[in-house]
């Protein structure tokens, strides 16, 4: 259950933690955009240094970021190998029929690898330092202009927030029901595919029943307290930009300029 580090908030009060969630969300997307500007070892070095600087600012241990890479490792290796074998140009180090390892192939492979790792690091940084609910708030706030087009932004945000709120609850419930069924002799994750699929039924049905009853209770509770979304509703967590958000934006611009100057 706890293997997916992507999406786990680690409490803290570092500089990064204190940034406005909108800043972090936008900066992460921006960063993922500009990483495609990097095209040689100098520009990748700058991006790498910048990333490690941000990780250092967050005061979260490096191990968490490495653990975030692990589930994606096979995908990354596969892509890197494709790059290595199918890029031509430069010195040829090894050849077998139409398969060849070339200078450009190797460097492209290394770049792709770095790009993957840096993108995972940055997304991990975002989720490790931002509470899911703040992220939902940020999404709502950033999508607000779409209301002109009659997009139900507040309702969508509410759905997102409720979903996020109940992820831990449902994970707990999953563990409990799995244990209860294990105690009745179910072997999860063993046997052939058909047996494994059959073993999931005693887990999924109670989980569905539970989710529906949670949803019903929540709806009743919200109704009973007169919940109403939309314009008139004030917020408990008010988002406000501070000076450090400006600094973060400036940092991103400096990074972009450096990249543009250094790239080949």
């Amino acid at each position: 259950m706890n293997k997916l580090i992507l999406g786990r908030y680690i409490p803290g009060d570092s500089w990064i933690h204190q940034l406005d969630p909108r800043t972090k969300l936008l900066a992460s997307f921006y960063y993922i955009g500009i990483i495609f500007l990097a095209n040689d070892w100098k520009s990748y070095l700058v991006m790498t240094l910048a990333t490690f600087f941000m990780i250092w600012l967050s005061k979260v241990k490096l191990g968490f970021f490495l653990r975030g890479v692990r589930p994606m490792l096979w995908l990354i290796l596969f892509t890197v190998l494709l790059q290595v074998f199918f890029t031509t140009g430069g010195k040829v180090y090894w050849q077998w029929g139409w398969l060849a390892i070339t200078q450009f192939g190797l460097s492209n492979g290394a770049f792709i690898f770095m790009r993957f790792v840096l993108i995972i690091f940055i997304s991990t940084l975002l989720t490790l330092t931002t509470q899911p609910l703040s992220l939902a708030d940020a999404v709502e706030s950033l999508l607000r202009p779409l209301r002109v087009l009659h997009v139900p932004v507040t309702e969508l945000a509410l759905v997102l927030q409720i979903a996020l709120r109940f992820v831990p609850t449902l994970m707990d419930q999953t563990t409990k029901i799995m244990n209860a069924q294990r105690a009745r002799g179910v072997d999860f994750g063993s046997g052939n595919l058909f047996q494994q699929m059959k073993a999931v039924v005693p887990l999924l049905i109670p989980l569905f029943v539970d989710s529906f009853s949670i949803a019903e209770d929540l709806a009743t509770a919200m109704d009973a307290r007169g919940y109403q979304g939309g314009d008139g509703r004030s917020k408990f967590r008010v988002l406000k930009y501070h000076r450090r958000d400006g600094a973060a934006a400036a940092g991103m611009i400096v990074l972009t300029v450096l990249l543009l100057l250094l790239r080949a």
Binding site: Q173, K176, N179, A180, A183, R184, G185, P206
Partner: peptide, 23 residues
């Protein structure tokens, strides 16, 4: 985690709010 089944048969466990396990 292999071969724990005989154990699970010998030790029956009724969990807190056991009604959640019905399916």
């Amino acid at each position: 985690n292999k071969n724990l089944k005989p154990l699970r048969q010998k030790v029956g466990m009724v969990f807190q709010f056991a009604e959640n396990q019905l399916f």
